[in-house]
Amino acid sequence: MVNEALQVERRGAIWVGEFRAMASPCEVHLELRSGKLAQQLLSMARMEALRIERLFSRYRDDNVIHRINEANGKPVTVDEETARMLDFADTCFHASDGLFDITSGVLREVWRFDGSDTIPTAAEVEPLLARIGWQRVTWEKPHICLPAGMQVDLGGIGKEYAVDRVLGLLRERSPGACLVNFGGDLHASGAPQSAGFWSVGIESHGSAGMATQSLQLQRGALTTSGDARRYLLRDGVRYSHVLNPKTGWPVVGAPAAVTVAGDTCIEAGIMSTLALLHGPDAESFLDSHELHYWVQR
């Protein structure tokens, strides 16, 4: 293929496009006969993923996130799409009683989950708490005003949003079934005719020999949150990369991975993230919301 960034291959009746976006391997599966339509749709999917990455990446200095974070206490007017993201984050913050908070990113200044045993001290963590808390943010659509020193990070829902969004675009244009999988967060529009279902393997992060579980997905979203590969280990204590925005410390007793099914990727993503934040009570939290889930501890 001419475009090296997008690898397209045919697996039986399914066209699969692979590319990288949002620091993740991304896959789009389309059940289509026409290779040209597949090529067009896959390239459109990649462009949309990159567009959303540009929009919400905290590593760029030319997007709305940068403007909000660098406003130094001044109000910033945002576009409609960002406004809807902030609305969504606002709803999640209030509904989760503050557990889901897009301002908690500043904790990364002291918590670096690089596989080392470098644990910050309480004195280092404590001052950060004053810079965390969505309730301190003035959000009056379309104006947002962050107190100086605070930051927002939409990375926690950006990828899930991109998955839903790309699937929505594909669903309008593709006559066949589609599945979008960005770094393990996936959403399918319908079952492929050829097989009757999408086979989805839940990768095991447990000990050796643990079976990989398989699901037959017909439609809907699946997301997985976990800390299997991002944690700190010190004195035999495993520090999860899931940080409680209220305490500034990692959640104790969090599962290694939580996979949640939902109607959309953003909903499932919020639920799997919140489940992790509930630590040892992840299962009961998920049960209380009558969700289909798979927990690995």
Partner: peptide, 24 residues
Amino acid sequence: CQNRFTAVRCQTLLCRAISAACLL
């Protein structure tokens, strides 16, 4: 769940735990 599947493994350390493929 049935046993007719193959898991495609995520290749990066950062990626989340699911991979999907239509494996016919």
